[in-house]
Design a protein around this nucleic acid. Sequence first.
DNA 1: AGTTCAGTGATGCGT
DNA 2: ACGCATCGCTGAACT
Lengths: 215, 215
Amino acid sequence: MMLSQVRVEQSFILYANCEVIYRGRAASTLSFGNYLITHKNDGTIKIDGGSLCNPLNYQPPGAILNKKGNTLISERKNEIIKINVTNVHFYKELSAWSNNRINIVKTESNLRDYFYDNLSELLTAEIVESYKEFQTPVGNIDILAIDKHNNYYVIEIKRGKANLATCSQLERYSNYFIDIGKNVRDYIVSPDISSNARLYAQENHQIYLQVNHKD
Amino acid sequence: MMLSQVRVEQSFILYANCEVIYRGRAASTLSFGNYLITHKNDGTIKIDGGSLCNPLNYQPPGAILNKKGNTLISERKNEIIKINVTNVHFYKELSAWSNNRINIVKTESNLRDYFYDNLSELLTAEIVESYKEFQTPVGNIDILAIDKHNNYYVIEIKRGKANLATCSQLERYSNYFIDIGKNVRDYIVSPDISSNARLYAQENHQIYLQVNHKD
DNA sequence: AGTTCAGTGATGCGT
DNA sequence: ACGCATCGCTGAACT
């Protein structure tokens, strides 16, 4: 006997006993239990357990959902999720779901702009040239500044705590200018820095400037 | 008149017209609309819009939820979310929500283990000593191997596409051994690599090995 | 508690 | 489409 597949585009929430099988870039299985399934009409589907913020399984926007008997199948490129439902506790379709964007402030770009607008003061140097998001073959530098003695200030900004990866990133940018014969001064600018990163910065002539977000 | 606060520990889903204000590491506002609110009894709360995978606002486990009139307030450390509800479309408490863990395969550690188990063959070298997650002050190296001529193979594994950050990470580990006088050979091992990273690797004597996950 | 790094990262912005 | 960087990243493992 052949079960027919039915395309599901409707947004809904479903609380059900089910198991979930995922195959794609990775692969996973989730054994039977009561989970919350959320489907949005952009194709997003999420399977949430009773704890933790992240879903246990999901598909991002663009996935196609089909129903085949008691099985929900979400497919996207080479990724597939199968949800075998044994008991529906609860099902509700959602209409008029809003798509408003959220407005976030105090991001890294806010901090970068603040620092850029107060460069000479914060670096205690006479800056004659400066750039935001300066492009190089090894990545974009948050702020590049040049003083009247032609010293290059390579500045990496982090909104949160700077770490070893931050130091390495700065080093990559810095080496690019050293290789073309410039005098370089390296700066890490953030509200905080990890102890290992602080040590690494000291040993590699990177200057750490602690700054807070302006309210 | 004083509204009393009532602690809410129950897991629930709520579909409602509301606005959301967040203050904490960053700050955000979300204007009135219909959103899905999910609360778990570990304190997790999520506000989902009608599209995209990630919630518009959230609190991770450990947050405390209180109800004060028509406002839900979730607090955690220095983070606070206020949800002003004007119209409840739908409310349902969830009981017996499962906490099963998911089992994922084809992770980076799977790839690392596969590579580690076939080191001599894959490096075409006579390896006499090898380590997984070798600890250094500048981070843990995925695989460190030493051949009979005392050459150090510093190997960085990525389950997905390697990028410039991967190269810098490898360079940081590599420099640690160079600084203590070792002969070092740098390897990036992944299923794919970005064009910039490939270029950077070539110019910095990093060897790229393309490997796929074993099924 | 702090630090590191992986992630089916997702998401946005650039080319 | 690819490349790249951010994220209130989250979550896990280890010190």
